[in-house]
Amino acid sequence: MISKRLVAASFTATLCVASAVVTHFEGLRSKTYLDPVGIPTICYGHTATAVVGQVRSTGECQALLDADLTVAINAVDTLVKVPLTVERRAALVSFVYNVGQGKLAGSTLLRKLNDGDVAGACEEFDRWVYAGGVKLNGLVARRAEERSLCEVGL
């Protein structure tokens, strides 16, 4: 009984922290736009069902964010084989939300983390600041925040 409550509390805490990071860096845009590499995007960086010309309400955007973050949490929980603090888990969830599960799956960041090199894994966030070969200031700031969360408790 207590274990289920702890799992739920951990999930909720991760969702709250990751949501704060994602909404800060993505911002809310209710009409579809093309991201820096030309991918149709809407709301808080949602891409999976976004099509050019689409408009979403704030409530619809929040529902998309919650669903997308849940997918990202599940991806992190599947890929990471070591215990995570809420902050480290949230950093990884924000990262997956932004770049996708496949990028984390094949990353040095994940390998170092699963090998027990937490500090080295956290340093890897700094490498993920390019989109379409261009270094983006927004990604630099986002990765700095994710790295900071990753390093809590080190």
Rank of each mutant, 00 (worst) to 15 (best):
D35F: 02
S30N: 05
L154G: 15
I42W: 01
A9H: 15
A20H: 11
I73Q: 02
E145D: 15
V118Q: 09
E87S: 11
E146R: 05
H24T: 15
Y97V: 10
I42S: 01
A9G: 09
T108S: 11
V118I: 11
L92C: 06
V93G: 02
A131K: 07
M1F: 14
G133N: 11
V134Y: 06
T49H: 13
D126L: 12
G106H: 06
R143Q: 13
H46L: 09
I39H: 04
V51M: 08
D117Y: 06
L92Y: 11
A105Q: 10
A121L: 04
D126H: 13
D77H: 05
G116C: 08
E151N: 15
V21R: 13
G100N: 09
L84W: 00
L104Q: 03
V86W: 08
L15G: 00
K135G: 12
V152K: 15
D77K: 01
K112I: 03
G120W: 15
E26Q: 07
C61I: 04
K112P: 02
D68G: 09
V134G: 07
L92N: 03
T70V: 02
T78V: 08
K4I: 10
E123F: 12
G53C: 11
T47W: 07
A8Y: 05
L79D: 01
P36G: 06
L34Q: 01
L84A: 03
R127E: 02
V71R: 12
A13F: 05
Q54G: 08
A141Q: 15
V17E: 11
P36H: 06
